[in-house]
Write a protein that binds this DNA or RNA. Structure first.
Lengths: 237, 237
DNA sequence: CGAGGGTTTGAAGTGCATCAAATAGTGTGG
DNA sequence: CCACACTATTTGATGCACTTCAAACCCTCG
């Protein structure tokens, strides 16, 4: 089975009765860039799982300005929290980079979390993690400048196993990266050039070579409240 | 009983065994402005409930810059999500305006949510709401200017039952409001003056009279993705 | 009344946005 | 495989919003 629900972390502790019912209602689709999954304020019937690709979450003002909330990679759920929002999607979602999307009925999820405590806890853990990610985002936008935010973004793309000669590829358009980081495309372009001057990274189109991560870390992470491999908080001993 | 746990929304569906155990471990304290409840990264033994007053959540960089995450009023829990952060507080907390704080052991909560589905769901709902609040915050900071953010803040303070002659009192220092809104105190002062010019509000120290809410709404909410009484999302019919 | 913190005002600087135009990159049909 | 059209990205010039540093003012409270 190419997309078995039981391998998804959220459903780890669900029994087969639930999973089979869900499976029966599952839809799997390949979407190209630009495909709108749902619109802010729509009545939410289904929620989505990103199997591959990237999805942009955003909202728009009346005069067309767009606020990008996040751009999510594979492994994330979208629209699941509509359960707690009067059954209405709290943002719009659009495919940012060709994606394989699984859609599932919200009603099943809603019913199941009311009975399956393990599922509720898994979801609680996921939402708590997401909340933390967002409050970090607020922090970044208030104390890091444009170049530092880009550096931080690159560091998060680079899996921190290697220290040197890390090569990464921007996962989506530079203009989208810019909006993800809360800046204009022009600012992104200039700030990336500034980052190159400051840290010696090498930019070839969407490919970026980072010879010396330490330099990037000391430039970007100095204006941040957590130390470098910043993903997980460890208990102080 | 002056501070009965069973009247707190989160514990609505908890049985008395749990509540009594919790009650036995409860501590109630009156703290003055400036009192630090806990520090980012500390091992989390207890979580806190704000019975009255205001509490500032923040983190600091090595060079002393402070990122204010939020400033919470009565009715909120603090530090509860440390459960999902390896038992470590994900932010520091300091009393912003004299507060009555109840502290409770995290271990009890942790154990109980693993068995009590209703409690887990209540908590899930709260965290999901909080997440939504944060993503709105990101939106505000990216598309509203300083004056509009202040206007939005004032509107949220004013309970929207009345349309005219609303009088509010800033709940904490202007400098703190500024940091809550992601700006400098000087910018706050100037932006508030600009807001007065644009909307005809009347400012006397920390007291603000708003004769005509509509004017404030049309000034502030035009650069926002949700319509005015913006707290709750309603299902489209 | 005077000390000290909170708040406002002034002057100057900085970073990012904006508008406009040039350049690079990508896909298409001939 | 090349020329064209179209989009993505960069570069330039300028403006504005917010910050910064400094000083004045105000308010409260001993």
């Amino acid at each position: 089975m190419d997309s078995d629900l039981k391998y998804i972390a959220l459903f780890q502790d669900c029994d087969s009765t639930f999973l089979n019912a869900l499976e029966a209602q599952k839809q799997r689709q390949n979407h190209k860039k630009g495909k709108v999954l749902f619109i802010y304020g729509d009545t939410a019937e289904r929620f989505y799982f990103i199997k591959s690709g990237w999805v942009k979450l955003f909202r728009e003002t009346l005069d067309g300005a767009q606020a990008v909330i996040d751009i999510l990679p594979a492994g994330n759920f979208i629209g699941d929290t509509a359960i707690f929002e009067n059954g209405v999607y709290p943002y719009s979602a659009e495919v940012a980079e060709s994606a394989e999307i699984i859609s599932l009925p919200l009603s099943n999820l809603k019913k199941e979390i009311e009975n399956n405590n393990k599922l509720a806890l898994n979801m609680l853990k996921a939402v708590a993690g997401y909340r933390r990610q967002l409050d970090k985002e607020i922090e970044h936008r208030s104390i890091q400048n444009a170049s530092q935010r880009i550096g931080c973004f690159l560091l998060r793309l680079a899996d921190q196993s290697k220290k040197n000669n890390v090569i990464i590829h921007l996962p989506y358009d530079k203009a989208l990266v810019a909006s993800r980081l809360g800046m204009q495309p022009e600012t992104f372009s200039r700030a990336l050039a500034k980052l190159r001057e400051k840290t010696g990274i090498c930019i070839k189109g969407a490919t970026i070579e980072m010879d010396n991560l330490d330099q990037l870390v000391s430039y970007s992470c100095s204006a941040c409240t957590s130390k470098f491999p910043c993903e997980d908080l460890q208990a102080a001993e």
